[in-house]
Amino acid sequence: MTLLEVDDLHTHFISRDIDNRVRVAKALNGVSFSLEAGRILGIVGETGAGKSLTAQSVVGLLRPPAKIVGGSVRFEGRELTTMAPDALNRLRGHEIAMVVQNPRTSLDPLTRVGDQLVRLHQVHSDAAPAASRQRALEMMQAVGIPDPQSRARAWPHELSGGMAQRVLLAMALMNAPKLLIADEPTTGLDVTVQAQILDLLRDLVARFDMATTIITHDLGVVAHFCDDIAVMFAGSIVESGPVRDVFAHPAHPYTRNLIGATPERFRVGGARLLGGQPPDLYNLPDGCAFRARCGFATDLCRTPVPRTHVSADHVALCHFAGQLDAAPDAEAQA
């Protein structure tokens, strides 16, 4: 069953310039995806593509001037975009949990970590404090924190980055969420610690049957820890599908470019890559937002872009999706 369904989500930053004219940055432009229990979706894209904003829009954590202006987010059939703040608060930290990038700034520096876990459990349940404390210790054990009894009494500043990230994971698991959103959960951690955290995360997803989204800019994480991938560019998911299909046959020129830039594919002195700036969100071009950087672009790309099915669940937002191999090779031309 589909747990989370995001449909045509539009989020804009609406502000006024010094002449009091309204300025609109179109940060999310029709994001759609769905997520099922037990599956891991990886969202990738360059800085400013809208990865984190997608997560914040889904869980209703946007702050002005950001605002959802269209589309819907349904969690178990319930619409979240119009849900009352109280009801949303009851969901967040309970059925929907989030792990954010910087573990140390996400913990309350003045509360012992065990107490923070207990507090989160108490807010969402009628359990006796002793039961909450027991659960906190269990969850700390589950995320691989050695000696939970004494670590529960630690202050956040006493934890290493990897340990703090484990505490955040334990916190996210306290109320047995159905949906876990992890925004760059391993960025800034060393590779050996990253491996520990990701192994743990995958194990927990299977054990608790959670639907999970990992937001990352590391294609290695997606390639080896996710079932599905969604590639974002300028506030749209330009390509999505099962990880193996997308890596083997990227259908969108941007995805090809992104995968071509990875250490495994990129050869110094080999094929040239399409560089360039992200488009101006205040002034997005008509048609395909990638066309200024695209080697395949034609006049057709100024018209609205169709969602093209390359295979049953592999979709790309491109006029030429699935035909790139037949087209003249842009990499050779450049």
């Binding site: 290695g220 994480v221 997606v222 390639a223 990880v243 990875t262 495994e264």
Partner: peptide, 12 residues
């Protein structure tokens, strides 16, 4: 260290 590195290719 090398084994903790994730190649950006699910086929590896």
């Amino acid at each position: 260290l090398l084994s903790a590195h994730l190649p950006s290719d699910p086929a590896i």
